[in-house]
Design a protein around this nucleic acid. Sequence first.
DNA 1: CTATGATCCTTGCGACCTCAAGTATAGAAG
DNA 2: CTTCTATACTTGAGGTCGCAAGGATCATAG
Lengths: 164, 164
Amino acid sequence: MSSQVLTTQAVSGETPGLPDTAWVRFLRAHAALTRELSSRLEVVHELTLSDFDVLVQLYYAEGWRMRRIDLARSVLLTASGITRLLDGLEAGGLVAKERCDSDARVTYAVLTKAGVRKMEEARESHLADIEELFGSRFSAQERDQLAELLGRLPLAHTSEQCSV
Amino acid sequence: MSSQVLTTQAVSGETPGLPDTAWVRFLRAHAALTRELSSRLEVVHELTLSDFDVLVQLYYAEGWRMRRIDLARSVLLTASGITRLLDGLEAGGLVAKERCDSDARVTYAVLTKAGVRKMEEARESHLADIEELFGSRFSAQERDQLAELLGRLPLAHTSEQCSV
DNA sequence: CTATGATCCTTGCGACCTCAAGTATAGAAG
DNA sequence: CTTCTATACTTGAGGTCGCAAGGATCATAG
């Protein structure tokens, strides 16, 4: 009732029990890919991966505008994370704040003209990078399959069960 | 010659062109899973995901010993990252330094008795967590398939081509 | 032996992100 | 109106990590 937890290990047969599971590959691939993609994005467009992520979300939102809290949830950052990330984008003139008339608690993040331009500028090269490092490794069918498999993973905190 | 880059998007049909590709799911899943796993590992065993990662590598290495640089490469951290991570583990008494007789440049990282104990302690619960949040989402076959697909991704810096 | 270049490791610095705590607003109940 | 709870956002402190630079050691060639 143990030792069956790790499937697909020791594929290369190097070290005896060294785990090389789907999960470990997942971790390694993420580290390598984000490092490389981030670095390219940084050099060419002076953007973080997260910056780009936020820009994309806003770009596809109605009126290029989103509540900060929704933005945070959609890119899986905490509220404070979004505040600081947007601080940077605001300083760079890519995003602006906007008050909400019906609820004074909320603030909108809006893409500025410059932000839209930046986004469209960065898009092409970044998508090409993703394609090169990620997408091109798979056939269209495999890509769909991968997306389906990854789509099953939990996106939020599981187990809200906190008794005491 | 564009707009075909993003396959598998808008699966849920919510926002028109909002990308929901395999890559985006990959990013989101990673953020969510590492957050949750890290938090659990922290609470129960006072370990980081990276800490555990290093412990595992050492545990399966000959003599529970590895050159720091090899350790760094195998967990995909930089040399400085390993130095600081091991600082923590050394302070906690889980890992010790050891000189190399044949080459004074290299230092080994060795699992201490306490380190081995910690590793065996943490292993069970952490693997169970991984299984719950990750593995259990897939059949054995799907797991293998996922591992195979993820295994195609580049693990190091691509394109060493730096002309000037 | 000395110079050169590569490798291993550490350290200063900064970037990014989280948690915990605090402020402000909203809505519901008394 | 007042109180209580929930939500939105910000800020201070701290942790992890990469990059760049520097020191030490090794290997090789002159």
